[in-house]
Write a protein that binds this DNA or RNA. Sequence first.
DNA 1: TATAGAGTCTCCCCTTGGGGGAGAGTCAAT
DNA 2: ATTGACTCTCCCCCAAGGGGAGACTCTATA
Lengths: 269, 269
Amino acid sequence: MKYSIGEFSLITQLSIKSLRLYHEKGLLVPAHVDDTSGYRFYDEANFDTARSIKSLRRYDFSLTEIGELLEGCDDEADMIVQLERKLGDIASKIDRYQDISRSIASIIEYEKESVMDNEREFEIEEKELNTVLIAGHRMRGRYQDVGEGLGLVCKTMGRHISGKPMTLYFDCDYKEDDADFEPCVPVRKGKESEGISVRELKGGRCVSLIHKGSYDTLRSSYKRIFGYINEKGFKTVLPTREIYRKGPGMIFKGNPKNYLTEIQVLIEE
Amino acid sequence: MKYSIGEFSLITQLSIKSLRLYHEKGLLVPAHVDDTSGYRFYDEANFDTARSIKSLRRYDFSLTEIGELLEGCDDEADMIVQLERKLGDIASKIDRYQDISRSIASIIEYEKESVMDNEREFEIEEKELNTVLIAGHRMRGRYQDVGEGLGLVCKTMGRHISGKPMTLYFDCDYKEDDADFEPCVPVRKGKESEGISVRELKGGRCVSLIHKGSYDTLRSSYKRIFGYINEKGFKTVLPTREIYRKGPGMIFKGNPKNYLTEIQVLIEE
DNA sequence: TATAGAGTCTCCCCTTGGGGGAGAGTCAAT
DNA sequence: ATTGACTCTCCCCCAAGGGGAGACTCTATA
């Protein structure tokens, strides 16, 4: 019994285009090709091959791989090896996509959270801070270098990170070029490594203000918060903290007008 | 500060080819293009865009999607929607790959198992069968139609299947065209549906022989097993069972010489 | 037997995200 | 002025087909 390509396509559920491609690649050669018309005709034996190809395609084998399998299909042990290799491929794809999935989920969480805060106006408040475990990288230089240090710390600690990134400032006054600071992140656990210090950061009573907008305008908020502290007669404790509640985002830099930075100054009780 | 495409490529870790492509697609337009030489020059602002593109590519966004995101990046809420859509995409990909992974694993198991039996020679033996839950599709016709019925049952029961497919034969003698049989599979659980009967198949003492080779030669094994039964003076109980321990395989038809079919004839105790 | 309509053929272009290379122009240093 | 390093555009390539054009071929009906 002979089947034209159209009939064969209907039966096997493979498109005519695909059948012609498989013919060209030598995967599924029609039983007979008419010399004068060039028409392809398929027979019963072709059904088995068609079924094999369909299965393998469903399992994400490439046409090249299918070709190799169809050639050497006599030794079944070899086929098992191929299947196991494929299983490994698939597993690593799953791993990769799961990584991506986790990353995207955490980005969404980050963005959502900060969008919520976005409409509020913020006032100075006093509050109690808990002691937290942090990993930090102490350095000297200009304020712009904070980003770099933060990147280093985040990359090193990876998924142990348990909170927003922050910077500790150890100077009592503003220094342009030789500031002493420590970009850090809260972590669940972690071990010391080159340049990275892991330790507890003591909590306590503090004065806090959330600054909205570009980092260039941070100093106006510092002025406000220290004005408040002086007015109340508090004595401050170093280091001062900056918590980056919403910064440049993990994908887009975003609009600096929407950046949110919390300034925390600990006070003696 | 201006960077040539080579420098920019080194810094951003994007290939020159990619950079030119992104320029062409309008995703990452150099800050300046020299009129006469056509040389591309990038500036600081381009770094942010480059970083965004790299992140999004890592998260499996297509260039088209990235383009749309870069256009409408002012409304962040919209970006969250896009990210969530992507998250859904990724999740469905993971699902799909996990399905494939499971399928391949079961194929491997099937093939391995049967390869092990492959070298053995088989003799008639008597053994005890347990009662099992089966799903079957009773039908009349030719023996060749067994395959179809089995396909139906397997597709319907899907992952509830818990053993090798088999056929029950209800005729006491060989009928060419109007045999009465029931392709079925053991299942863990399952509900009746159109044409499918789910029930317990009673066990008992039986005479069993594993037939090696094409189904066309099955009758010689039947002759042997019934010869044995007559010799021993056993009385048989219908239906007779054929268990397809290794058949045409899920991908390749395989070599019929290696097919293994167990014939089980229950006897009165 | 002519013709219409359906089926099939080959050939070409398109998709994604670039890689590889040819041939020509440009830049900076010697 | 020349040389070597960069860069430009343009073309072809990958996988697995999809879409369509223009030309044949087959079959059924008038």
